[in-house]
Design a binder for these strands. Structure first.
Length: 644
RNA sequence: GCCGAUGUAGCUCAGUGGUAGAGCACUUCCUUGGUAAGGAAGAGGUCACGGGUUCAAAUCCCGUCAUUGGCUCCA
């Protein structure tokens, strides 16, 4: 007999050899049917495999991340089986579960899979899944595993196995299909009730662009048909929140082939939106002791050679502009920091001047690869809400913490509740990608980790994600489709002050080197607006929205009164417009609702004679009658609340 | 840059080799109304661009450009 302990602390005895599913059955048949995966003492186990030792069990269903992962991992096996059945010459590589489904990377040789082939794949997939084949793990000797794949002429699997220790190599069989696999399946393929092949894409073997390109087939499966329908519905809804669609509808920005790829054109409404965001941050920065600076759009190449950016990113910049007579080379400014370093150097600095916080909405240009461009989130010309804080060693942590507060204030004001605070450190395997002394890196990394900890941030650490000159704290926010984008960033840098020989005179009358903090709470105005649009679905908070109030005269007769009201609202600093079209009021309401105007004011005979306006809130309907100043107060108070 | 997809009116899209289409938006006229679409008429396109096949191309083929889903990259 063995003792099994459940997460709630309860214990039960079972005969040795019992499976996780049997254990679930002992609780309820419903649970047994729903269990997808299990773990014993934290180790993932196959749900149908015999358990021969006592331990702590956890049972996972579709509602658990672990359950979904096992489900999609198993589905990847079936996908591989499907592809092999339809394209027998395929060489399999890897096929992991991801956040939304799974993929399998395959070498199809001469064949290609097109979107038109997806229905065929889906049909075969379900045919195979319905066989209810059990997933069974078995171990293999390294030599046997190698010869198996050598015989199949599959260099990818051979490479994978060569990197594994003998004695740890396992395969998973189901039906007539077998694959190298470390485990973590559902019991059998029968639980898969619905599949959607979502995309075919190229992907490099082991993520290295010098390696052969494989075909990656993406799919998603569900234990119920209705869940697939819900997922497809979610994708439809996400499309409505796409910033590219909303940007067009709300007339915020556009692109022109003539102007160039990745070079956004801000339309008046978009430019005014940006202005409000910038002013919001400028006000906050003024309070926090920042000083504005302005630097030009081009800079001498030597400036970036000095900073090290040219060596590292020269190929990712636009090519230098050469002056006709002197032959001097200039780059379109790819970042603002070297300029700000030179501003620092414009005058001798004392420790009394520090921290010196230089801020600029600096527009920069980067030659991003064409395949990378994406709406406003990845462009070739964009404006950073940049600032560089020059401080002493002792001031780094406090300055860093203040910047965290600023980022969190912005996120709170704009209702970004879900974000990831990512600490990006050096790649411990390859320090050659970075400049500077180990000692400085350690100081910088320690400062970030401590500051984030003292601010109580829930952080994840990513190795190898640091900038080449220093570690950083990045704030990542997801778009409508769940893709993660870096918005705010804070970076500690001991290296550029060194390279630019920045100095200050300390209380000891000796020269010292300052530390630099790079920070951009929005990140780039373009990307920030994009993610903001997707978050609020185009329904901007009142303080940001272009048109706060739409005045709707009941008929043309009241247009003059409407204009008077408009002036009055403007006097209260409220942005409003009058809908003077000869349309019925129902139509005007509908259009204002669709334009996502937060407040509507209806003006007709009743309002004029009573002196009270009739107010509607977007998405809510009629709010009743108000005196104009009471309404103005309502609006201004709502704005104040949003900004505090 | 690489692999796949897409490109028709301002927007969303239909149109599989034989005269370029719809809805919304726009313009004009009628209508002057009470809380999510009043009516009529009109205007609007070198079917992304360049070549080819054909008696005939939006449609088939090749190339280019742009957009797009991924991969790689991201100061």
């Amino acid at each position: 007999m063995i003792n099994i302990t459940f997460p709630d602390g309860n214990q039960k005895s079972f005969e040795a050899g019992v499976s996780a599913i049997d254990i679930a059955k002992s609780i309820s048949h419903k649970l047994a049917k729903e269990v997808l995966s299990a773990s014993l003492d934290g180790q993932t186990i196959e749900p149908g495999a015999p358990i021969n030792q006592s331990g702590n069990i956890k049972l996972f269903t579709w509602n658990d991340k672990e359950g979904k992962q096992a489900f999609w991992h198993s589905s990847a096996h079936v996908l591989a089986q499907t592809i092999l059945a339809l394209y027998p010459k395929t060489k399999l590589t890897i096929g992991p579960p991801i956040d939304n489904g799974f993929y399998y990377d395959v070498d199809l040789g001469e064949e290609t899979i097109h979107e038109a082939d997806f229905p065929k794949l889906e049909q075969k997939f379900m045919e195979l899944a319905r066989q209810k084949a059990e997933f069974k793990m078995r171990s293999s000797k390294k030599a046997d595993a190698l010869s198996y794949y050598k015989e199949k002429q599959n260099p990818y699997k051979v490479e994978l196995i060569e990197n594994l220790e003998d004695g740890t190599i396992t395969f998973c069989d189901h039906s007539d299909f077998t694959d190298l696999c470390r485990g973590g399946h559902i019991a059998n393929t029968g639980a898969i009730k619905a599949v959607k092949i979502t995309a075919a894409a190229g992907a490099y073997w082991r993520g290295n662009e010098n390696n052969p390109q494989l075909t990656r087939i993406y799919g998603i499966t569900f234990p119920k048909q209705t869940l697939l329908e819900e997922y497809l519905h979610f994708l439809e809804e996400a499309k409505k929140r796409d910033h590219r669609k909303l940007g067009k509808e709300l007339e915020l920005f556009t692109f022109s082939q003539k102007v160039g790829q990745g070079l956004p054109l801000w339309l008046p409404k978009g430019a005014m939106l940006r202005e409000r965001l910038e002013n919001f941050l400028k006000t906050a920065q003024k309070k926090a002791g920042y000083l504005p600076v302005i630097s030009p759009h081009i800079g001498n190449k030597d400036l970036y050679v000095c900073s090290g950016h040219y060596e590292k990113y020269g190929k990712d910049s636009f090519q230098p502009i050469t002056t006709p007579h002197e032959g001097e080379e200039f780059l379109l400014k790819p970042m603002n920091c070297p300029h700000h370093c030179e501003i620092y150097k414009s005058s001798p600095r004392s420790y009394k001047d520090l921290p010196l916080r230089l801020a600029e909405f600096g527009t920069v240009y980067r030659y991003e690869q064409s395949g990378e461009l994406h709406g406003l989130t990845r462009v070739r010309g964009f404006t950073q809400d940049d600032a560089h804080l020059f401080c002493t060693n002792d001031q780094v942590k406090d300055e860093f913490k203040d910047v965290i507060d600023l980022v969190l204030y912005i996120f709170k004001t704009l209702d970004f509740k879900e974000y990831t605070a990512q600490i990006s450190l050096r790649d411990p395997e390859d320090k050659t990608k970075y400049i500077g002394e180990d000692e400085n890196w350690e100081k910088a990394e320690k400062a970030i980790i401590e500051a984030a900890e003292e601010k109580g941030l829930n952080t994840v650490i990513e190795y190898g994600e640091a900038a080449f000159y220093g570690p950083k704290l990045d704030f990542m926010v997801k778009d409508a489709l769940g893709r993660s984008w870096q918005l705010g960033t804070i970076q500690v840098d001991y290296n550029l002050p060194e390279r630019f020989e920045l100095e200050y005179v300390g209380a000891d009358n000796q020269k010292h080197r300052p530390v630099m903090i790079h920070r951009a709470p929005f990140g780039s105005m373009e990307r920030f607006v994009a993610v903001l649009l997707e978050h609020c679905e185009g329904k901007f908070p009142l303080w940001l929205v272009h048109n706060q109030v739409m005045i709707l005269p009941v008929s043309d007769k009241y247009n003059d009164e409407a204009q008077k009201l408009l002036k009055l609202l403007n006097y209260y600093d409220i942005r409003a417009l009058v809908d003077e079209r000869s349309e019925k009021v129902g139509r005007k309401i509908r259009d204002a609702e669709l334009q996502k105007v937060p407040y509507m004011v209806i003006l007709g005979e009743k309002e004029i004679s009573s002196g009270k306006i009739s107010v509607r809130r977007q998405g809510q309907g009629d709010l009743g009658n108000f005196d104009v100043d009471a309404f103005a107060k309502l609006v201004t108070e709502e704005i104040e609340k949003e900004l505090n």
